[in-house]
């Protein structure tokens, strides 16, 4: 599936939730089930510092695709990371670099990317796209 197809799939899933509690319970579940980043990558080099929560991101090149693993010290941030990874993982580098992550706004989580939240997610997305761009450029 393409990046946009996966995004639409997530938007459809969220349409089922009646209230914010259900939505966040789902995000927390995703957070709990996020495949863990290899412990060796949870270091300063892979840390994306936020004022509120920390995010660790590791990217591996597989041909022209990028494989991501990540983690955070906050559960809701982890849940959102799980969705970002679902959308961008193993996609062509060029698609990652030019992606428009509209699903975040559509499922009502844009707040989590605002400057004030400062939870590392905004920088994580930037970083993911940078990896895409770097691999695309090295073709």
């Amino acid at each position: 599936m393409s990046i946009d197809e996966i995004q639409n799939e997530i938007v459809d899933e969220f349409a089922f939730f009646d209230d914010w509690t259900e939505k966040y319970e789902y995000i927390i579940d995703l957070g709990k089930n996020l495949p863990l980043i290899d412990e060796q990558y949870k270091d300063e080099d892979h840390l994306i510092r936020g004022c509120q929560s920390k995010v660790w991101l590791h990217a591996e090149r597989q041909d022209q695709q990028v494989h991501f693993t990540a983690d955070s010290d906050a559960m809701i941030t982890r849940g959102i990371i799980a969705m970002l990874i679902r959308v961008l993982n193993d996609q062509p580098a060029s698609d990652i670099a030019s992606s428009d992550l509209f699903f975040i706004e559509k499922i009502g989580l844009r707040d989590h990317l605002s400057q004030t939240r400062s939870n590392g997610l905004t920088n994580m997305i930037k970083q993911m796209k940078m990896y895409g761009l770097a691999i695309e450029a090295s073709k």
């Binding site: 914010w20 509690t21 966040y24 927390i28 509120q52 929560s53 010290d73 906050a74 559960m75 809701i76 941030t77 989590h112 939870n119």
Partner: peptide, 13 residues
């Protein structure tokens, strides 16, 4: 065992 950010987010809602 719980990050303050998670509690803060759920209180916000």
């Amino acid at each position: 065992g719980i990050h303050p950010y998670d509690i803060g987010t759920l209180l916000d809602h």
